[in-house]
Computed example of a mutant assay.
Amino acid sequence: MPNTEESEPLGAVAPMRLSSAVPAEPHMVARLSGTQLKAMATSGGFSVDDTTGNRMIHALEAALETLETRWADLEKLQHDPPMSESPAARWVGRHMVDTASDAEGLLTQLRTARREIPVYVAAIQLAKRTYRETETGVRGRLHGIRREIDPGEV
């Protein structure tokens, strides 16, 4: 039974930490960069079978294609929207632009996605190769064990 003094209240979810560089604050979302995912794939910390990896790649490439197709329209968010010249309209327009372009804004996030999706795809391709190599190695070891157990059967 867990120590109630140290355990979280029922229903509480501990913030996820991907590294010590990512702050674990309730309002923060942990992000995994393409570079981090690639490093995990290289080290064997992330591997995926071909079918699942292909589905992931297809989904990411479709998202990137949609983003690229609509990019010109999305970039309009970095300019004041056509509104009246009243002080309130100017304030609202400026606020919309600032919100879209700030550190957590839509345009900022979409620019990051455009840059990161190709790196994610490369990481998934590497993870697929890691999975195949691991699977081949395990099959070879199992085949060797089987020969040791019953040399006449193989």
Rank of each mutant, 00 (worst) to 15 (best):
N3H: 11
N3D: 14
E5C: 09
S7Q: 05
P9M: 01
A12L: 06
V13H: 10
V13D: 12
V13A: 14
V13W: 13
A14P: 02
L18C: 09
S19L: 01
S20W: 09
A21I: 01
V22M: 10
P23H: 03
E25P: 00
E25F: 08
P26C: 07
H27C: 04
H27M: 03
M28D: 15
M28G: 12
V29H: 14
L32I: 03
S33M: 13
G34M: 00
T35Q: 12
T35A: 08
Q36W: 05
L37W: 04
L37H: 10
M40F: 10
A41F: 02
S43L: 06
S43G: 07
D50C: 02
T51A: 11
T51L: 10
T51C: 11
G53S: 11
N54K: 15
R55Q: 04
L60E: 09
E68K: 12
W71R: 14
W71S: 13
W71A: 11
A72T: 11
D73R: 11
L74G: 05
K76E: 09
Q78M: 15
D80P: 04
D80A: 07
S84V: 12
S84F: 15
P87R: 09
A89D: 13
W91A: 15
V92C: 01
H95I: 05
H95G: 04
V97Y: 10
D98C: 08
E104C: 04
E104D: 08
L107E: 03
T108L: 11
Q109I: 07
Q109W: 04
R111S: 12
A113E: 07
R114D: 04
R115K: 03
E116T: 09
I117R: 01
P118V: 04
V119T: 00
A123V: 07
A123Q: 06
Q125H: 12
L126R: 02
A127M: 00
R129K: 11
R132Q: 13
T134P: 02
E135T: 01
E135A: 06
T136A: 15
G140P: 00
G140K: 08
R141V: 04
L142T: 06
H143M: 14
I145W: 13
R146Q: 11
R147L: 02
E148I: 05
D150K: 12
P151S: 05
G152M: 08
G152N: 14
V154F: 07
